[in-house]
């Protein structure tokens, strides 16, 4: 495992933990898209179906368990414990517009037409666009709390670091996976606008607010 891959995983973990802590400490999930969190729970579930059949390392297995557990915990906090603070009115992105095309594409473009492989491919496609309901929510309310911005920055950095990891693996091992690569590029591109706002505003101590 190279440093980019490790930093990517770390960044992903930090994002997930920031979100959980934010909701837990403030006892509120306002400004957070429950729909994006449902999509992430689906992503982890369909990707890590090989949890018990495909052992890579203790590190891999533990990270998978942590990601899955945290994503379900987040969904529970939003739709269960802190439901009263959830922003139903603004979180209106139609997730079937992401789920259905991802599923169709996974059937059409995959490495192997087998159930596990199709579900893995589906999870890769879905992950690349799963943040859209969250970005939609931010654009609808026109602002994001600073802690939510940190969450989005860590989550966006994760796939960017994976892109560097794939570049590294291509040159050092000749390894590449076009499905993951192209989806990873799309996923990172979706964050570009946000990255710009984060660097130009949040890092200078200002709250992230969008021009009216």
């Amino acid at each position: 495992m190279n440093v980019f891959r490790f930093l990517g995983d770390l960044s992903h973990l930090v994002a997930i933990v920031i979100l959980l802590l934010k909701i837990w400490k403030t006892r509120s999930c306002s400004g957070i898209s429950g729909r994006s969190q449902i999509l992430f729970a689906i992503v982890f579930t369909t990707r890590y179906l090989d949890l018990f059949s495909n052992f890579i390392s203790v590190y891999n297995t533990s990270m998978k368990i942590v990601y899955i557990t945290c994503s379900y915990a987040t969904v529970y906090l939003i739709y269960g414990k802190f439901k009263a603070t959830y922003d139903f009115n603004h979180d209106t992105f139609r997730i079937e517009f992401l789920l259905v095309p991802s599923a169709i594409l996974a059937f059409l473009v995959n490495h192997d037409f087998s159930p596990l492989e199709i579900l893995w491919t589906f999870s890769i496609y879905l992950e690349s666009v799963a943040i859209l309901p969250q970005l939609f929510l931010v654009s609808k309310t026109g602002e994001a709390e600073t802690i939510t911005s940190h969450y989005l920055f860590a989550l966006g950095s994760y796939r960017l670091l994976y892109l560097l990891n794939w570049l590294w693996r291509y040159f050092s091992q000749g390894f590449y996976d076009l499905i993951a690569l192209l989806s990873g590029i799309l996923q990172t591109v979706l964050y570009c606008d946000f990255f710009y706002l984060y660097i130009s505003k949040v890092l200078k101590g200002k709250k992230l607010s969008l021009p009216a």
């Binding site: 090989d50 495909n54 891999n60 893995w120 000749g174 996976d177 993951a180």
Partner: peptide, 10 residues
């Protein structure tokens, strides 16, 4: 294209 049979990434 080299595809690792066992997926080793997260």
């Amino acid at each position: 294209q080299v595809i690792l049979k066992k997926k080793d990434e997260l």
